[in-house]
Computed example of a mutant assay.
Amino acid sequence: MENYTYNSFVLQLEGLKVAEDSIYLVFFLFLFSYIVFMVMNLGILVLIFIDRNLHQPMYLLFCNLTVSDIIGSTHILPRLLSDLLLPPSERLISYYECVVQAFITHLFGTTSHTVLMIMAFDRYVAICHPLHYSSIMTNKMIIKLTVSAWGVPFVLVGILLGLTIRLNRCRTLITNPFCDNASLFKLSCESVVINNIYGLAFTVVLFIASIGSVVLTYTKITVVCLTSKNKSLNSKALKTCSTHLVVYLIMSLSGSTIVILHRFPQYSDYRKLSAILFVIVPGGLNPIIYGLQSKEIRSFLFKIFHNRKCKQ
């Protein structure tokens, strides 16, 4: 018979199951990944901040994605690294800390979609309405898009976690390396039908909205490129849109994998690894993809390295 502990304020994280002889290897691998991740993302933010040529709507909107990636990795990876060095029985977390971590986890995942949606809108205006771009993508519009990209997820995720907080808890084990909504409401012995319905509706609406906006904008961009004989426009559209599309596909595929694996408890180890890779991989690739694609970023980096060589 299962032992129940009602409404305990101390929870236990199951964490990653790693063989004892591999713990330090996995620890340093994640630590190295986190350091590289932070250096690249903070570097991109600094570059955009100090170089006036990068003070364009595309890069200012991209800053939202970078900030979201930094928040998403920082609230998970340092805690995960410390838990790796502890025995499973000592991987404890308070209930309130777990709720905050779950909130940030879902806020990070949702804003990744909404930010890419507003970036798709920016690409649509730039390519389909180039003459009106400066009048549409004003500083006021950028602020509105940014507030929407963070405000809508904040409200939706707040409702998601609010439905979970109302439940009484009878278990204490979080079957995940970190806290998320599904792991939290699985602690309850009450009916979680409402949670499942809202969570499923939330996920479906988010994916339909993000996929729909990307398909719609890219369809219109494709039509413009096919009907236009402007090679310069087509080349610019191909570069900027392919970059955005690659980032979107990486993020969507990794996020979908976690959602699917949550429905199959027998693959819990794969789900845990996928959840961690969702934090590391898209955020680690974003600055590389945009950095390689961006002529402005490449030229800025070239100037820095060229000046250093000249000084030497």
Results as ranks from 00 to 15, higher is better:
9 F>W: 06
161 L>D: 15
233 L>A: 03
181 N>V: 08
263 R>G: 04
211 I>T: 06
109 G>Q: 11
60 L>P: 10
270 Y>P: 00
285 L>T: 11
276 I>T: 04
158 G>C: 07
243 T>E: 13
311 K>F: 13
192 V>E: 02
292 L>H: 05
291 G>V: 11
297 I>N: 10
209 A>N: 09
267 Y>R: 00
50 I>V: 08
48 I>M: 12
36 V>I: 14
126 A>R: 05
123 R>M: 03
106 H>T: 11
110 T>I: 07
156 L>E: 09
90 E>N: 10
297 I>Q: 08
141 M>N: 13
138 T>H: 01
312 Q>A: 04
77 L>Q: 14
278 F>G: 03
194 I>K: 03
278 F>T: 14
293 Q>T: 14
55 H>V: 09
182 A>Q: 14
299 S>W: 06
220 K>V: 03
184 L>F: 06
102 A>C: 11
18 V>R: 02
250 I>M: 09
276 I>D: 02
55 H>A: 15
165 I>K: 06
265 P>H: 04
310 C>M: 12
134 S>E: 14
283 G>W: 03
171 R>Q: 13
288 I>Q: 02
94 S>Y: 12
109 G>D: 08
131 L>K: 13
74 T>D: 12
235 S>F: 05
145 L>R: 13
9 F>Q: 15
210 S>Y: 08
119 M>L: 11
180 D>R: 01
14 E>I: 00
233 L>V: 05
